[in-house]
Amino acid sequence: MKTKFSQLILPMLVVVFAVTSAFTSHAENKSKSVAIVTGYIQHPGAEEPCEASNQCTTVNTGTFCKVGQIATNPRLWDKNINDECVMPLYRP
């Protein structure tokens, strides 16, 4: 019985552990790859309508990116192809 366990079950457990570890480490690396971009403060009608501020991400993390990451401060935006600050950014 002991040799049957060693010869059959133990190698299967090692393979299951290895496969599980491989998927776990891959998922962890994928979640850390976040696109960091410069967030801009909107100044509608001003000569410079967008002012660079903090670093933000384009990936929706559920929390909007704000100046200094303080909830009461203005939201930050990304520029579109026309250099308008209209694309929402999120806290990294």
Rank of each mutant, 00 (worst) to 15 (best):
T3E: 00
T58K: 15
S33W: 04
V37E: 12
V67L: 14
K32V: 06
Q42T: 11
V15P: 09
W77Q: 03
C50D: 07
M1D: 06
M1L: 01
I9F: 10
V37Y: 11
N82A: 08
M87P: 00
E51L: 15
T3A: 02
K2H: 02
S53E: 15
F23A: 01
N54L: 04
N80H: 10
S53P: 07
T63M: 03
K66H: 07
V37H: 11
C65Y: 11
P92C: 13
Q42W: 06
F5D: 00
S6P: 00
H26D: 03
I70E: 09
N29R: 10
C50S: 14
Q7I: 02
N60D: 14
C65N: 09
P11E: 07
G68V: 13
E51K: 15
N54Y: 14
C56P: 08
S33K: 15
R91D: 12
T63K: 13
K32C: 02
S6L: 07
V15S: 12
E47D: 11
Y90D: 08
Y40R: 03
P88R: 08
M1H: 01
I70C: 01
T3H: 00
G68P: 07
D78A: 15
V37Q: 11
N80F: 08
T38E: 05
T58I: 14
Y40A: 08
A46M: 09
Q69H: 02
N80D: 15
L89T: 09
S33V: 12
S33A: 12
E28A: 12
N29A: 11
Q69F: 12
T61P: 07
L76A: 00
C50G: 12
D83I: 01
F5A: 01
T20N: 05
T58S: 11
T61A: 03
L89R: 01
E48N: 13
A35T: 15
F17D: 04
E51C: 11
I41K: 13
C65V: 15
E84F: 11
V16Q: 10
A71H: 07
